[in-house]
Every structure is written in C-alpha cells, then in structure tokens.
C-alpha cells in the first residue's frame, strides 16, 4: 500500500513593523519591565560596568522612567543599538523608548514617525584632532581623512560644513564608537567627528587625553533627547513628564537626598507638592501612581545630580553645564509648569 504523506513546514516570518501601535504604557506595566534602547557603549552616557550594570546619563533617563512607571529603577532591559539599528528597534516595538543621544530633527520627528519627548542634552558637532597635528581650526582640515559614525546626522552636517567652506575631505565610515576610537588612535584618520559630548566621553577613555584637542568650531545644533513611537501620546506624556520632573526637581531643589522627606508631608511650595503627589492628582492623570515623581527622582537624583555624577566637571569626561544649565542660571533647561 502506498501512502502519500504531505508534510508542509511553513515558517512565517513575523513582520512586526508597527504591530505595537498603542498602549505602550499598559504593555510595560504588564511586562513589569521597560525595554530601553541605548548606545552600544559610550562612557558617561550609556556603558555597562565590570559587573554588567549599565550606567550613564542616558541610562539614568531610562531608570527614572522605569521608576515612575513600575516603581523600580532596576526593572529595565537595556537594548544596545547602533546608529543604524536604533530607529528600526524603536519602530518595530523591540524597545519602548530610545535614550541614545539621538538628535531631534524634523524628518525624524515627522517622516520617521517618532515623537521626541524633550531634550536632555543640548549638544553640537565638533572635531577632535591630535595636538601633534598642529591644527587649530576645523577650516584647516582641507584634504583630511575624517572618521565618522555612519547613519547619524553628523554625516550630513559634515558634508554641509565642508561644502560650505569649499574644502575637501575623505570620509571613513565606521559603525561604532569603539571602531572610530581604534582608527583615530592608530592614525588611520586625522580627525574624529561626532557630538562634542561624545568626543569628550571618548577622549576620557584615552591613555593620554591631554594629547588630543576638540577644535573650537561647533558645526551644528544637536539637541539630544529621548524618543518614543509616534501615535502613542499617553506613553509619550509619561516619558516627557518624567524628564520634566527631573529638570523641575533641580530647579525646585528636590534632590535624591531630601525627596523622601519632602514627600512625607505637604510642604509650603504648592508646585513641589504637586510634583511629589502630596497635592493634586497629576500621577493619576498620567495613569501612574501618586508617587511617580518621587520614584523617578529617587532613582538617580534630579537632572543636576545625574549630570554631575555621569558627565560633569568632576568626572573624567569633564563637561561643563554650559547650555545645559537651568534657565535661572543662564542655560536652556526650562520645564513647563506642573499644574
């Protein structure tokens, strides 16, 4: 007897493009964990330490959001992304938010369908050169070989800068910061260009940081901020106001040291009371618990504390507050009112 057996193995490649369109807040709560996209490693902004713990300025934003939503700053799954993979990771729902020194531009906001929830670092693109090269201005870089991370706005700024000044260059595209560092230190490129904060962070890891200078030209505006998928306003609000809470906390003098005490009973300042949930129902409006901001601030401190601990002047990276000071100190940080 002959039997025909038909075995069909059909593998369905799940095209998850935009499958998670709405309800990120509920998804995160149900999962009990926040998936946060960060860099593959940029000291000071996001890098794992020897124990595999992630630390850094961008990481602190992820932790604050996790603390606000889930009450636990450690309930974060960090997903390392490169300049190339980050948008696909966010768009496909692999990560809930991206805190990866990403520049806010119109086309990313509008055409790539993302929502930037604010700016956590005002940056600009610069050039780092070895002191021995004897270059004092980026305009002297005619004919230079430039290492550049591919898939970033820096690539376009670089092309614009050299075209505007009518000088030529040889781009060497690289995939990650580590590769750029290797090529730059070996002299395979004359200069390395990226955001000045990134240059400072990279230089801090060199053996002799003093042998390298960041040129004075800032060739672009690079407002860096966390972003989420377009079309999920609830989730965008949660991340936006968590960031604002960190900024407002510094302005109001709420620190990780005194937040518990200030939140224990309503104080004399009504805005502080509203932020900390002892007055009003801002947490409820966001779909969070009343002490959401308390959790967010306890996670890593207010904006100023996070800055000072990760990239401030007393760290190897040594960035001054500059534009990133509070508006009351002549900077650009300005949180809308909590009301």
């Amino acid at each position: 007897m002959k039997k025909t057996v038909f075995l069909g193995a059909l593998t369905v490649a799940g095209l998850a493009a935009g499958a998670a369109a709405a309800g990120t807040l509920d998804d995160v709560k149900a999962r009990g964990k926040l998936n946060c996209g960060v860099t593959t490693g940029l000291v000071g902004f996001a890098a794992p330490d020897a124990n595999g713990e992630w630390h850094g300025f961008d990481v602190a934003v992820c932790r604050a959001v996790a603390a606000a939503v889930l009450g636990d700053p450690t309930a974060v799954e960090f997903v390392p992304t490169t300049g190339k993979t980050r948008f696909t990771a966010l768009g496909s729902g692999e990560v809930d938010m991206l805190a990866r020194n990403t520049t806010w531009t119109l086309s990313r906001d509008v055409d790539l369908k993302f929502t930037f929830v604010g700016i956590n670092y005002y940056d600009g693109q610069g050039f780092m050169v070895p002191k021995a090269l004897g270059v004092s201005s980026a305009k002297e870089l005619n004919g230079a070989t430039v290492c550049i991370q591919t898939g970033t706005t820096t690539e376009l700024n670089l092309a614009d800068f050299f075209r505007k000044n009518n000088i030529s260059y040889e781009p060497v595209p690289i995939e990650t910061n580590a590769e750029g560092q290797q090529q730059y230190l070996a002299g395979a490129c004359d200069t390395y260009t990226t955001d000045i904060s990134g240059l400072a962070a990279t230089r801090a890891t060199f053996e002799n940081p003093a042998d390298h200078v960041v040129l004075p030209e800032v060739v672009s505006k690079e407002p860096l901020g966390p972003l989420v998928r377009h079309g999920d306003d609830e989730w965008a609000d949660v991340t936006r106001w968590t960031l604002n809470a960190l900024i407002a906390a510094e302005e109001m003098g709420i620190t990780s040291a005194n937040v518990k005490e200030m939140a224990s009973a309503p104080g004399s300042n009504p805005e502080i009371n509203r932020i900390l949930g002892t007055e009003g129902n801002l947490g409820e409006m966001l779909g969070l618990s009343a002490d959401w901001a308390v959790n967010a601030i306890s996670a890593g401190g207010n904006y100023g504390e996070i800055f000072a601990r990760n990239i401030g002047e007393n760290t190897p990276i040594g960035l001054a507050r500059g534009l990133n000071a509070q508006w009351t100190d002549g900077g650009l940080l300005y949180s809308p009112p909590f009301r």
């Binding site: 493009a17 300049g83 190339k84 948008f87 696909t88 768009g91 086309s107 990313r108 055409d111 790539l112 369908k113 591919t150 898939g151 970033t152 690539e155 376009l156 595209p173």
Partner: peptide
C-alpha cells in the same frame, strides 16, 4: 545603510 537611515525607508 546610509540612505535607509537618512530616509527611514527600510522596506
């Protein structure tokens, strides 16, 4: 690579 990134047209 770069075109995909600058335009966001993955597919």
């Amino acid at each position: 690579g770069i075109t995909l990134n600058q335009t966001g047209r993955e597919l």
